[in-house]
């Protein structure tokens, strides 16, 4: 449904005229701080997201991603700092702001005792639609997201992927211009994950702005126009996926040696392929290669000529751990999930 259609609907139902998004960035946030007891869940977060783009908020468990989403969706009051979403202030204009957003998360927040259709109809009515309009919209979305066959089954009978899809669908009921997706693919099997990515991509093609949190670099890389890396409640890097990957460095070559005693000689032979000092860990020589192309062949030739036996070798794409290693000098730390999933 178009935004204009939504306004017409509200007029028909006698509801208040919904506000339209104001000009300017879809999200601005400055100096956001939120503490839980002694834990500074977010500690001075600044963000800016342009309308119609996807920002990937990348970080390990407990970095503060969910807290940022909760502050921006008015579920939590920040201790200090300011933020606007679609031009509305999170503190003083919460009600108008909530008309502009949809929220879907890692919890798949649907009522398991209601059917898919009943869930979506309920959400539509809470957005102020009439019952018949909400039902129509629900069918529309169920068909679009391949849930029409399951529409009249209770959500508790759905698979994990279907449930997540229903949750995402619920966030789209009012066709909000701003979408928050909190770890939308965590725990999904690879096939459902890719299907969900395609869905998200089609949404942005329609002009929706998305803030997406994720623990996976490949997810942020594939979906996001810009990535903000968050660690211990602070944004520690911000840029396009390419800029970020440049900072992380290229792909990692790992060579498992037949004889660990050859490690020093192998490092000597391979050091010219990298800008950093190769390391020897767990029986493997590891180095970040300057150029991906031909790296494997070259490494094999050099080691073969020197008569060094190779058990296994491979190129590994950078992961979140590598990003953190490159940006902070330490691996991504997973903190006690209990105190950080707030």
């Amino acid at each position: 449904m178009t935004r204009a259609g939504q306004i017409r609907d509200a007029a028909e139902t006698g509801g208040a005229e919904p506000e339209v998004p104001r000009d300017g960035p879809a999200i601005t946030a400055g100096g956001l701080v939120k503490c839980f007891g002694d834990v500074r869940a977010i500690d001075g977060v600044d963000l800016e997201v342009e309308t119609g783009t996807i920002l990937g908020l990348l970080g390990p468990n407990g970095a503060g991603k969910t807290t940022v989403v909760r502050v921006l969706t008015t579920l939590l009051k920040p201790d200090s700092g300011a933020a606007t979403v679609a031009g509305f202030d999170v503190l003083s204009e919460g009600a108008a702001l909530r008309e502009q957003i949809g929220l879907a998360g890692q919890y798949a927040a649907v009522d398991e005792n209601l059917t898919g259709l009943e869930n979506l109809t309920m959400v539509g009515r809470l957005y102020g639609m009439t019952r018949s309009r909400a039902k129509m919209r629900a069918w529309e979305l169920l068909a679009r997201f391949d849930l029409a066959d399951a529409a009249k089954r209770p959500a508790r009978t759905y698979s994990g992927g279907m449930r997540r899809r229903l949750d995402l669908t619920a966030a789209l009921v009012a066709d909000p211009p701003m979408l928050f997706l909190d770890e939308p693919t965590t725990g999904l099997d690879p096939r459902s994950r890719i299907a969900l990515w395609e869905t998200i991509e089609s949404l942005v093609a329609d002009g929706t702005t998305v803030l997406l949190t994720t623990q996976y670099l490949d997810e942020a890389d594939r979906l996001a126009d810009r990535i903000a890396v968050i660690d211990h409640g602070k944004v520690i890097a911000d840029g396009t996926p390419d800029e970020l990957k440049d900072r992380v460095g290229g792909e990692k070559l790992e060579v498992r040696l037949s004889e660990p005693g050859d490690a020093d000689r192998a490092i000597e032979l391979l050091v010219s392929m990298t800008d950093e000092q190769p390391v020897f860990e767990d029986g493997s020589v590891k180095l970040t290669v300057r150029r991906r192309k031909g790296a494997i062949v070259e490494a094999v030739q050099r080691l073969n000529q020197a008569g060094i036996g190779i058990d296994d070798l491979g190129l590994r794409r950078p992961t979140l751990d590598d990003v953190f290693l490159a940006l902070t000098g330490h691996a991504a730390e997973v903190e006690d999930a209990g105190q950080v999933e707030v």
């Binding site: 919904p18 909760r70 969706t73 008015t74 579920l75 009600a95 108008a96 909530r98 008309e99 957003i101 949809g102 929220l103 998360g105 919890y107 798949a108 927040a109 649907v110 009522d111 398991e112 959400v123 809470l126 957005y127 102020g128 619920a170 928050f180």
Partner: peptide, 12 residues
């Protein structure tokens, strides 16, 4: 189950 979060994010 996070349903309250959903409700609280709606303009209800």
């Amino acid at each position: 189950k996070g349903l309250i979060d959903r409700f609280r994010s709606l303009p209800m």
